[in-house]
Simulated scan of single mutants.
Amino acid sequence: MRVIAWLVEGTWPACVDAVREHTPAGAEVVLLHVSGPEVPGVAHGAFAGLLGRGRRNDPGDLMETLNDGSAAELLAAAAERLGRPCVREERSGRVEREVVAAAEGADLLVLARDGDHTRLGPHSLGPASRFTVDHAPCPVLLVWPDRAPSLRTLPPPPPH
């Protein structure tokens, strides 16, 4: 069994705990972190457009380096929390597409809700997570990063 756990800052502990709880000890576990191009891209653009005339030391390069270090630290913490052999995989690009591509051939994809945690419903998923759930090429285990909201928060039925 091959399990991919998509790890995101802030919600990754719930994914790691779900893998420990819901997958067999002998499963191949891949801890996946995907860095999007947004923040370094903005810094590169700002530097080139406003500050880059004849200067060096593009701040976007520094942001990419810091982002890479942050991802490695997150993956190391997740591997320690998992407490069993695993593969650490870092990707960069359009986050939702990289996660779907990484899940190809997997038996399970584990991810955490990343939207509104105060009530049940579709807003509990952000855009990247919604895309991933809708397009995953394997079964998906979707976990709450904290305690699930009460059933009283369930949206009312349609008026018809």
Rank of each mutant, 00 (worst) to 15 (best):
R81E: 10
D116W: 03
A72G: 11
T118V: 10
A101C: 07
L74G: 12
S92L: 00
V110D: 02
A18F: 03
R88D: 08
G36V: 13
R53Q: 14
R88V: 06
L109W: 00
L141W: 08
P24H: 13
G83R: 03
P149E: 04
H117N: 06
A27C: 00
A106D: 10
L141K: 15
A76E: 14
R20K: 10
A76L: 08
A27G: 08
P122D: 15
L142W: 04
H44A: 02
V133F: 03
G115M: 05
R81M: 04
V16F: 02
H22R: 14
E38I: 05
L74W: 01
A14L: 02
A71I: 14
H44N: 03
D116L: 08
E89G: 01
L74R: 03
P40G: 00
E89D: 09
A79C: 06
R152F: 10
E104V: 10
P137R: 11
A71S: 13
R88Q: 11
D61Y: 07
R20Y: 01
L75M: 06
A106F: 05
A148M: 12
L31I: 10
V34T: 05
L109D: 09
P85H: 04
V30D: 05
H135Q: 15
G126F: 08
L74P: 00
R55H: 05
V99F: 01
A27Q: 04
L141D: 02
A112F: 04
V95C: 00
T132Y: 01
L66R: 14
L111W: 07
V16N: 01
P40K: 09
D116C: 03
G69P: 08
R56A: 15
E98S: 06
R56Q: 15
V100K: 12
D107S: 12
P149Y: 13
R94T: 12
L82H: 01
R113C: 10
R81F: 07
A72E: 13
H123G: 11
G121W: 02
V140Q: 14
